[in-house]
Nucleic acid binder design. Structure first.
Lengths: 181, 181
DNA sequence: TCGATTACGCTACTTCGAGTATCGATACTA
DNA sequence: TAGTATCGATACTCGAAGTAGCGTAATCGA
């Protein structure tokens, strides 16, 4: 497929993603304006809006890049679930990721278009992979995602800190007991 | 205690709370501006700001009023927990309450002052009551609150709809198994 | 009845962030 | 060299949070 005409885009997506997470980490989601993110990346704000139509789309793309494919390893559903939960908890604990996630999530509550993006682009791949790996129904997997992600985000939102390893262990144990039943 | 001097405040708190929930329900959290809430209540915006310093404080006061004390009835921890979970799910499903909760919650992620209000005024009483009713440790009760409220809010945020009774049943069963362990 | 005090409604204002418009300069293709 | 699309920069619109000031209304004590 031939290159489209005109000046090609410069490869600054990774730079913008890094600047986004860094700005959210330093200033919080609400004060991480597009102006500031652009300044942190050393580019013009208009360049950001040429690539992502809204701030929500930018954050979602940033999260998609940060999370990537889920590592679903293990010989049993128990091991697979434990790995997935600990991986999720670790990601949410990384600087900026948890706050960005919580921020875009809350924006989505009353923005159906953004909700569509979140559910379709971010949640859907993990849902499919988990269904296949665990052999569980769609509704069951969606329920498990609600429990795991909801719990981790609620802790982050109420305390400002990611969940401790001890509590993540409790979450793993609770889900595993639920799976065996 | 003698009445303070000057014109007394009119009893419009309940009116404002009702207008707040109604506006959030109709327009969503983001478009439920203080101007619109005031218009829905039939009062001036400045009157709202005389009573609540910020929009977050207004929403929190509204939620405090809407939730009220938790009904913790039952002869066993299982029954108490089941009642508390279903009561919480029902409240979050009421028009406007879930969206207002999710909105103020997300605002709190990067607003320590608002987080203080949420944790201290809204969560704290339920935490104390549950500790007493269940005989569990503080950290255990906080974990349970994270799971229940986080799961319900995540479902609401991802789908725009409150959790179905079937899934609430699954949540109850999972928590009960976790409690017995 | 009169002054002091405080709340209310109203209008106007400041501030800030999301998103848009425009323009000159630049990089690439045909 | 002509055409196209990107980048940076500046300036702009729009909407919402929160503030200021004023005239008016309600309640108190004297």
């Amino acid at each position: 497929m031939p290159r489209p005409p005109g000046r090609p885009r410069t490869g600054i997506d990774d730079l913008v993603f890094a600047a986004t997470l860094s700005t959210v980490h330093d200033l919080g989601y609400a004060r991480a304006t597009v102006d500031r993110i652009a300044a942190a990346a050393g580019i013009a704000k208009t360049t950001i809006y040429r690539r992502w139509p809204t701030k929500g789309a930018l954050i979602t793309a940033c999260l998609l890049d940060a999370f990537g494919p889920a590592p679903l390893h293990g010989d049993s559903p128990d091991e697979i679930m434990a790995g997935a939960i600990r991986w999720t908890a670790g990601k949410i604990g990384e600087p900026g990721i948890g706050a960005a996630f919580a921020g875009v999530f809350t924006d989505a509550v009353n923005d159906p278009a953004l909700r569509e993006i979140l559910a379709g682009q971010l949640q859907e791949p993990y849902k499919m992979a988990l269904q296949k790996a665990l052999g569980e129904s769609e509704s069951r997997v969606l329920f498990l995602i609600d429990v795991v992600v909801g719990t981790l985000l609620h802790r982050l939102g109420m305390t400002g800190e990611p969940m401790t390893d001890t509590d993540v262990d409790a979450l793993v144990a609770m889900i595993q007991r639920s799976l065996r039943q």
